[in-house]
Amino acid sequence: MPKQRVLITGAAGFLGSHLCDKFIQEDFHVIAMDNLITGDLKNIEHLFHLEQFEFYHHDVTKFVHVPGNLDYILHFASPASPIDYLKIPIQTLKVGSLGTHNLLGLAKEKKARILIASTSEVYGDPLVHPQNESYYGNVSTIGPRGVYDEAKRFQESITMAYHRFHGLETRIVRIFNTYGPRMRLNDGRVIPAFIGQALRGEDLTVFGDGSQTRSFCYVSDQIEGIYRLLLSDYVYPVNIGNPHEISIKDFAEEIIKLTGTKQKVIYKELPQDDPMQRQPDISCAKKILGWEPQVNRAEGMKITYDFFKGLSQDELTKKEHKDFAKHIRK
């Protein structure tokens, strides 16, 4: 019996690469796609030798064609860190709108089920705590973070429109802060920023007074939740994240203790529209998917820190991997 085929966009990124691993382990034929603006082929180089894996170097904001049948599509192509989406705001909006439209059209053509990667950022700076899926959010459309927040909100809207109008099988995951190996040290998110500063012997930078909160989910838990949602019958958005909340100030102290460094915490002005609270209500995921996180933060952070500590000096900065060009389909 032929293997089921899945297309994963953003496949060379942090979550995309772990999804490739998951679907290979589940005996799928994986078609990976990435334009490599923020992704890195090093994340998936270990899969190139497999017959059940192929890679397309392609920008999904342009017409997407994949030969043969497709059973599933997972759309994870998008800048996901503030540094990235503030640097390339137009591309961020385009991948959330044009890219999503192209992939929904492909799913319709192939009669494939499609899962869209949304984000907790659709809740903005929330007035409801913890955030559940029925909360509409508190988002500034014209603020600097709006390019990412609104791209994801549009993604959800057009996905539901395709589901209702075309009867397309769709799934929407709202991803809360996730961490683990293969994150980029220079991507501006809390965990790699803190660990990067610790490894360089710098003081840890906290924005605002550090009272803002985040909830961190280890990558293996996130991937399992996504996988279960894809295979479920539930079409509405589902929060996938770890509900254990911690203030940024307290988390900085945890990092100093974990790394055994002697840095101090310094404080800088809070960026515009930075959310003050972030904690998922995962009642829906528990009920619909039978899912909840299994990896506690102490365990997950040790694995993550060991990963970053093991990087060479060259690997601490993003590099092109031109030697993989022969594996890439233009």
Rank of each mutant, 00 (worst) to 15 (best):
L230M: 02
I248K: 06
H244W: 15
R228F: 09
D221P: 10
V219Q: 09
L229N: 09
Q222N: 15
I248L: 08
E224N: 08
Y218R: 06
D250L: 14
S247R: 07
N242S: 06
A252M: 00
N239I: 07
P243F: 10
R228G: 13
S220R: 12
S215R: 01
D233P: 02
S215E: 01
L231S: 04
G225Y: 00
C217D: 08
L229A: 00
N239E: 04
K249N: 14
P237V: 01
C217V: 02
G241R: 03
P237W: 00
H244V: 15
Y227G: 08
S220N: 13
L229I: 04
I223H: 06
A252E: 02
I246Y: 10
I248G: 04
S247M: 03
Y227I: 04
S215M: 10
I226L: 09
H244M: 15
Q222R: 14
Y234N: 09
H244P: 14
S220L: 13
I248Q: 00
P237S: 09
I223P: 11
H244E: 15
F216I: 09
D250Q: 14
L230D: 04
Y236K: 12
P237R: 05
S247L: 14
D233N: 12
E224P: 03
E224Y: 00
G241S: 03
N239C: 10
C217N: 05
Y227H: 12
I240K: 04
L229D: 02
E245D: 01
Y227E: 01
I226M: 03
Q222L: 15
D221I: 02
C217E: 03
S220K: 13
G225N: 00
I246G: 09
V235F: 10
G225A: 00
V235Q: 06
E245S: 09
S220T: 13
S247P: 12
Y227N: 08
Y234L: 14
F251Y: 02
I223M: 05
L229P: 02
K249S: 11
F251V: 03
E224G: 10
C217W: 02
R228I: 14
E245M: 04
Y227Q: 11
S232N: 03
I226S: 10
I248D: 07
D233F: 08
C217I: 03
P243Q: 11
E245H: 03
L231H: 12
I246E: 10
Y234Q: 14
G241M: 07
G225R: 05
V235T: 15
I226V: 05
P243L: 03
I240N: 06
N242G: 08
Q222G: 15
V235C: 11
S215W: 06
F216W: 04
N242R: 12
I226E: 01
K249R: 15
